[in-house]
């Protein structure tokens, strides 16, 4: 359907049978790709081609394909979610590439994100960090207070909302030269720390989430800012500074129990 504008591309894709396999880059050719197709549609075309050839299709994570679920996780030509800013891989279109290009497609690389198969990595480390404190304990007895009954300054509400737009895709970890999860954790710490409902458990929360983050084997923050640039939701480094303040002040002030 693409006709004269169709792109002929060389793809270098990471193939790995399972978490035990060493894995390697494989080279594939795809022809006549429409510039209007999304990157994931191009991957679908590659997989159809591989199936027709009797080969194993490339495993990759995807779900909503509209930039809100955070599942798609490809490291394309040396950048998380590929070229372009404020987008996930599913929002990347083939018009960003030129006919004859070679495209490198790799999984997120981090010790804390082990490869399950091909481009699929295990991001359950993020789930364990959330389980360690990324929540507000509420009374579910039927007497739950109406959230609107608590006055919240507009500036705080906006910042909390901005932090809460994090979709947990892991592009921050993938982009960071240290595979640090600070941007993700700081967004989750901030979205609660900025609101009065989150304050009673704030000290406990930041301590437990940072402890879990460190145990998962993520690296330290070098403040390069790569995470902020590559984040599809534009989560700010301001959140990392806030988490540093929350963590340090709670370390010095919190009563030990």
């Amino acid at each position: 359907m693409s006709g004269a504008n169709g792109l002929n591309l060389t793809l270098k894709v990471w193939r790995q049978k399972n978490d035990k396999d060493k894995g390697q880059m494989e080279t594939y050719q795809v022809a006549d790709i429409s510039p209007d197709s999304s990157f994931l549609e191009m991957m679908d075309i590659l997989n159809e081609q591989l199936i027709e050839e009797g080969k194993e299709p490339v495993a990759f994570d995807h779900d909503c394909r509209e930039g809100i679920c955070g599942m798609c996780s490809m490291y394309i030509n040396g950048e998380a979610h590929g070229p372009g800013r404020g987008i996930t891989t599913c929002q990347l279109h083939m018009r960003e590439f030129n006919n004859g290009d070679t495209i490198y497609i790799e999984p997120w690389r981090a010790k804390a994100f082990p490869v399950i198969k091909d481009l699929v990595v295990d991001r359950s480390g993020f789930d364990r960090i959330m389980a360690a404190g990324g929540f507000v304990s509420v009374n579910t007895s039927g007497n739950t207070q109406d959230a609107n009954a608590i006055p919240i300054p507009k500036a705080d509400a906006d910042k909390a909302f901005d932090a809460a737009t994090c979709i947990g895709c892991g592009a921050c970890v993938a982009s960071c030269k240290n595979a640090s999860a600070m941007l993700f954790v700081s967004a989750k710490v901030s979205q609660f720390a900025l609101l009065p409902q989150g304050r009673p458990e704030a000290a406990e929360r930041v301590q437990n989430m940072v402890k879990q983050m460190d145990e998962e084997g993520f690296g330290n923050c070098s403040n390069t800012g790569a995470c902020e640039v590559e984040c599809p939701k534009g989560i700010s480094l301001e959140n990392i500074a806030r988490m540093n303040r929350e963590y340090l002040s709670s370390s010095f002030k919190k009563e030990e129990v």
Binding site: Y75, G78, R109, A110, K111, A179, G217
Partner: peptide
């Protein structure tokens, strides 16, 4: 924290 490096 990153045992396997990126090819690119």
């Amino acid at each position: 924290a990153r045992a396997v490096r990126y090819a690119k």
